[in-house]
Every structure is written in structure tokens, then in C-alpha cells.
């Protein structure tokens, strides 16, 4: 976490991540160009570069779309999720270079502007086989560049979380557009089945991981879903001591995930959704007395749901009580910042 906005808050992990990312991109481009020139001595540099940049960016987008579900399926992938923004900006840069080179090469130096040519040079909008594939790539690029430009927390705070989240969910629209861009463009002119197989494996991998992660989320919701235990709306959660110290038990009540954290003998109920990027706060831990979101390390005081000063984030808290050694939750949120919800189990042993 950081209070003031900086372009990048460097730490050793982030530096290693970026160095490895840069080396990987250079290696990919070098291998594509090197193998391309050896295999096809007649090839031109600009065509190979265009294809190297395009395939590198598209591959990076696949990796980006796999990291989210992988981290949902196994938390050991979280270090890659934390730094995903850098991969996203790199991918958008590769896309920009590919798009810019294509615009210059195919549409530049003509009798109309390159941008006008992009949308008018192929008029066959009504034909699937001849459909203009380049505007599809351009539309995807606009989304990806917009996402890269607004990936910083400055924009998250200023656009508001719902707008920011909606904008960044457009990555799936961009992915769909790029699949069409490739399928209706390069795939139509290549004679080898390898590009088609690679695209198929990519789509199946991304789609398969998303399905598996969604299935796991549904399973979790099924396991944590409870019904009110009385007419008053209080929910019988579990026996005190069933929650591991420093962790949370998730409860699904009225469609909302609530995390009941245990810090020693004190229990607190918070919304399980982080205010930062809707991260899974309920899968976080208590570290130094604060509930920490596993995605980007945002912290909240368990008693009141407020981030430690000078941060401004607040998550809703809920009333808890202990009756006959069992924890009861009222899923009606308290006023933001209210500290009256948490309860102490006094002398509990896990």
C-alpha cells in the first residue's frame, strides 16, 4: 500500500519481475525474428517484426487472462497477480507497436489518411470470409491501451471502483475481438495448421481456467451459504475456536460474502470484498493486527473496517455475538466505521 501516488512503488520482487518480463519479451522477439530469417531467407524484416510483435502481445494477453483464475485456484500464483499491471502495460505496448507498424505499412503513404483507410479500405462488412479484420484489432487495441493507461490506482480512485472495474472487465471483449482479428485475418492466409492449433490451445486454456475458477467460486459459495438461524435474522456461523487464528471464515448471507476474522480471542465480521479491486479480502490474513487482502495487500482494521490512517478505504462491518460458545452473525451492515460489531471470545483455544 502507498498513500501518495507514485508511478511504480518499487521493491526487490517487482524489480526482478520487470527484469524477467523485459528479458522474456526481448527473447521472444529475438527468437521469432532469428528463426524466421533462418527458416525464410526471403522474408522481409518489417513483416517478421509485425508478426513477432503481434504474436508476443497476443501471447502476453493469454498469460494475463490465465493469472487471475490460476490465483483463484491456487494462492501460490498470487505474486504474479500482484504484478499483473506491469504485464498488462507491456502487452498494450506490444499491441501498440504492432498496430502502429501495421497502420503505417498497410494504410500509410496513401491518398487518404491512414485512419480513414483503416475503416474504408475493405468494404466487405457483410461477408464473413472477407470481413475487415483490421478494425477488430484496432478496437481491441483501444480497449487495451485505455486499460493500460488507467491501470494505476490514481485512476481507480478517481474513476471510482465500479467504473474502473467495468472498464477493466472489457479485457474479455478485447480478447474476443483479437480472436476474431486473428481468425479472420492471419489464419485465413496461412497454409500450416499450427497457427490454428496454437489459437485453439490458447482459447481452451483461458476458457478452461476461467470455468474451473468460476466452479471453485460456486463451490465455495455453496459451502459457506447459511440460512438465518432465528426469526431475528442472526446466523449461527460456527463454534468459537473453529476459525484458525489470523484467518477468516466466509459466510454467504443475502448474496453477500462476509468474512469473520479471528485475531487471538477477538472476532470481527467484515465485508469479504476489498475496496481496492473487489479482491477476496475474506481469503486474507491478520498481519500486525490488520486484515490484509491477498491480492494487493490492502489493509483494514478488523474492528471498524477502516484502513489505517492516512488511507481512506472502509469496508462494511457486521454485528457478531457469542452465545453458548457459538458465533452468531447479523448480516445487516453497521454504519461505516462502526466498531461495535466485533466480539471477544475470551480464553478461546483453537
Amino acid at each position: 500500500m502507498g498513500h501518495s501516488y507514485q508511478a511504480v512503488q518499487w521493491n526487490p520482487n517487482k524489480k526482478r519481475y520487470d527484469a524477467l518480463l523485459l528479458v522474456s519479451v526481448v527473447l521472444y522477439l529475438g527468437v521469432f525474428l532469428g528463426v524466421g530469417f533462418v527458416w525464410f531467407p526471403e522474408a522481409t524484416a518489417e513483416t517478421l517484426l509485425l508478426r513477432a510483435l503481434g504474436t508476443a502481445g497476443f501471447l502476453a494477453l493469454h498469460v494475463i487472462l490465465c493469472i487471475g483464475p490460476l490465483a483463484r485456484l491456487d494462492r501460490r500464483w498470487l505474486p504474479l497477480l500482484y504484478n499483473r499491471r506491469h504485464l498488462g502495460v507491456t502487452m498494450a505496448t506490444l499491441g501498440l507497436l504492432h498496430g502502429g507498424l501495421a497502420l503505417l505499412q498497410f494504410h500509410g503513404f496513401g491518398d487518404v489518411s491512414a485512419f480513414e483507410s483503416l475503416f474504408t479500405s475493405n468494404p466487405r462488412w457483410g461477408s464473413l470470409a472477407q470481413f475487415p479484420f483490421q478494425p477488430l484489432g484496432a478496437a481491441a487495441l483501444v480497449i487495451l491501451v485505455l486499460m493500460a493507461a488507467t491501470s494505476h490506482d490514481f485512476w481507480l480512485a478517481n474513476l471510482t471502483a465500479p467504473v474502473w472495474k467495468a472498464l477493466h472487465m472489457l479485457v474479455y471483449v478485447a480478447y474476443g475481438l483479437l480472436v476474431m482479428h486473428v481468425a479472420l485475418g492471419a489464419l485465413q492466409v496461412e497454409s500450416s495448421p499450427i497457427p490454428l492449433v496454437l489459437l485453439g490451445v490458447g482459447i481452451l486454456t483461458v476458457g478452461g481456467l476461467q470455468v474451473l475458477a468460476a466452479r471453485k467460486d460456486r463451490q465455495v459459495d455453496g459451502e459457506i451459504g447459511v440460512s438465518p438461524g432465528s426469526d431475528t435474522g442472526w446466523i449461527d456461523v460456527c463454534a468459537i475456536g473453529e476459525i484458525e487464528d489470523g484467518r477468516a471464515r466466509l459466510v454467504l448471507a443475502s448474496g453477500e460474502r462476509i468474512a469473520i476474522f479471528r485475531d487471538g480471542d477477538r472476532y470481527s465480521a467484515l465485508s469479504a470484498v476489498c475496496q481496492h479491486q473487489n479482491g477476496p479480502l475474506g481469503e486474507g490474513r491478520i498481519v500486525d493486527g490488520l486484515a490484509v487482502c491477498p491480492w494487493h495487500g490492502f489493509q483494514y482494521r478488523p474492528k471498524c473496517g477502516r484502513s489505517p490512517e492516512p488511507f481512506q478505504e472502509v469496508v462494511p462491518t457486521f454485528p457478531l455475538k457469542i452465545v453458548e460458545e457459538r458465533l452468531w452473525l447479523d448480516p445487516t451492515p453497521l454504519p461505516l466505521g462502526d466498531e461495535s460489531g466485533s466480539t471477544s471470545g475470551g480464553g478461546i483455544r483453537a
Partner: peptide, 16 residues
């Protein structure tokens, strides 16, 4: 990724 780079590079249609 480097394997993909090799496959993508060698599977291009031959150049004139």
C-alpha cells in the same frame, strides 16, 4: 513462450 515463438515463426506461409 519461446517454443510458441519458434512454432509461430516456422509455420508462416513461405515468402516469395
Amino acid at each position: 513462450a519461446l517454443g510458441v515463438a519458434v512454432l509461430a515463426a516456422i509455420s508462416q506461409r513461405p515468402f516469395a
